[in-house]
């Protein structure tokens, strides 16, 4: 592992679609899966390529961008401040639902808790206070209930939805 004073170590990551990423060590160590890879193989050579067979290039690029910024925030002692919130808001603003979903799966696979928490909360915020029809349309979900089932599930907690405004 890198020691103080050494040149910045680069970690090589290879995605499912065969792209090679070069990532600074502190950023790559945000990924629990990469960290444990090196913890288990302590004598791994510096140019070892870590395969990430469940992540493709696009979400990984997004994740690296996010983690890089957060590593810097932490280094500057800005963690938890408005600056971070602003970055997060900007970061998520330009992501479509599809991208967001891919990011979540990738962040889950790479096991980056901080990012996963942030992303799931974002998805949750997009679900909050929405009607069933809106959620189906927004996330492209098909209604696979039979009419009887739908009626049953609707009836069960009907009291909770009385007098709810439509979107």
């Amino acid at each position: 592992m890198s020691k103080l004073g050494q040149a910045k170590r680069i970690i090589f990551l290879k995605t499912a679609d065969g792209q090679l990423f070069e990532v600074d060590e502190p950023v790559a160590m945000e990924f629990e899966i990469v960290k444990s890879f090196f913890d288990e193989n302590e004598d791994a050579a510096d140019d070892t390529v870590v395969p990430l067979p469940n992540v493709s290039a696009e979400p990984l690029a997004g994740i690296i961008e996010f983690c890089k910024a957060h590593v810097e925030f932490r280094a500057n002692g800005a963690a938890g401040k408005d600056e971070v919130k602003k970055f997060n808001a900007e970061y998520i603003k330009e992501k479509s639902n599809e991208q967001l979903k891919e990011l979540i799966l990738a962040a889950n696979y790479l096991n980056i808790k901080e990012m996963l928490d942030f992303l799931t909360e974002t998805i949750a915020n997009r679900l909050k206070n929405k009607s069933v029809e809106y959620v189906r349309a927004f996330f492209g979900i098909e209604n696979d209930f039979t009419p009887q089932e739908e009626e049953a599930v609707r009836k069960e907690y009907e009291w909770a939805f009385e007098g709810v405004d439509e979107d």
Binding site: K101, N108, L116, L119, A124, A160
Partner: peptide, 17 residues
């Protein structure tokens, strides 16, 4: 699948919905 992760962040009313 990503949606299922988000369930943990939802409140009672949103879960019922």
């Amino acid at each position: 699948d990503a949606l299922f992760f988000a369930l943990g962040c939802l409140g009672v009313k949103d879960l019922l919905s």
